[in-house]
């Protein structure tokens, strides 16, 4: 029996739902026991565990300390969701004045303690495995849980959403219909959901941290512009989910 903890930071809890769902499979329930999970188990303090799943990005000092203490108590750390891996959609506020953002969102902003930056978990601690996605794909999580129980890990495949799109036999919406699609620069894993509905991918699994550099991203932006998107929308789309990776690439060099 592996002992499991689930820790949530700044996020929408969408990924956590997938954890709950994974624990409905009998072969998984028979190998793992959830010991700490504020949404599900009535335990105040997290003890030592074999695996911890961390969802969400880090917004303040308190969360940063928490993540470090969690790392110390867990044998294996899995960052789940694009927030934990790359910063997530909350990164859109980076670049704006943090006080303006607070005022726009909260009635009493003076009580909100928050960094102006967004930190993915992977910036603060060593993570053993990542499952990106917004939310993550439930089958990626069950695959991880099953393979971990056999003493291994899923074999990592680093590719674009386009790979899944083509394996599903979908016609490219960008090429055949001129619909802007972020598939070529987005990490695979979702199974090309958006193109399967005739829509463009909007990058929710985060921008590829491999193979891209500034020149290539600019070529891609130009392509989207040719399809009629305006520059600001393109920038917002590209930095939307994988903000950290995007800004590292645009600062120069490869991610």
């Amino acid at each position: 029996m592996y002992r499991v903890a689930v820790v949530k930071l700044t996020s929408c809890s969408g990924c956590i739902n997938e954890i709950v769902y994974a624990f409905t499979f009998s072969d998984i329930v028979s190998k793992y026991r959830i010991e700490y999970f504020t949404e599900l188990v009535d335990v105040e303090e997290m003890g030592g565990v074999d695996i911890v799943f961390i969802e969400g990005s880090i917004s303040n000092k308190h969360q940063e300390e928490l993540v470090k203490s969690v790392r110390a108590k867990a044998g294996f750390v899995v960052a789940i969701g694009t927030c934990a891996v790359m910063g997530g959609v909350q990164s859109l506020r980076v670049g704006s004045d943090v006080n303006d953002v607070k005022k726009a969102v909260y009635a009493e902003p003076q009580y909100i303690e928050v960094y102006s930056d967004v930190k993915p978990v992977t910036d603060v601690i060593k993570v053993d495995f990542v499952i990106p996605g917004c939310p993550i794909n439930g089958s990626a999580l069950t695959s991880f849980l099953r393979k971990y129980a056999f003493g291994g890990l899923p074999i990592a495949v680093h590719e674009s959403v386009c790979a899944e799109c083509k394996r599903r036999g979908l016609e490219c919406v960008l090429v055949a219909r001129g619909v802007p699609c972020l598939g070529p620069v987005t990490v695979s894993g979702c199974g090309a959901i958006c193109p399967s509905f005739g829509r463009g991918c909007y990058g929710c699994y985060g921008i590829k941290y491999f193979d891209l550099n500034r020149e290539k991203l600019e070529a891609f932006s130009r392509r989207l512009a040719e399809l009629g998107m305006d520059r600001d929308d393109i920038d917002a789309l590209l930095k939307g989910y994988g903000f950290k990776v995007y800004s590292a690439i645009m600062r120069g060099g490869e991610a």
């Binding site: 393979k147 056999f150 003493g151 291994g152 890990l153 899923p154 074999i155 990592a156």
Partner: peptide, 12 residues
């Protein structure tokens, strides 16, 4: 090394 060799060396 990685996914499978870990399972062999540590698990089998």
């Amino acid at each position: 090394m990685g996914a499978v060799t870990k399972a062999i060396t540590l698990g089998l």
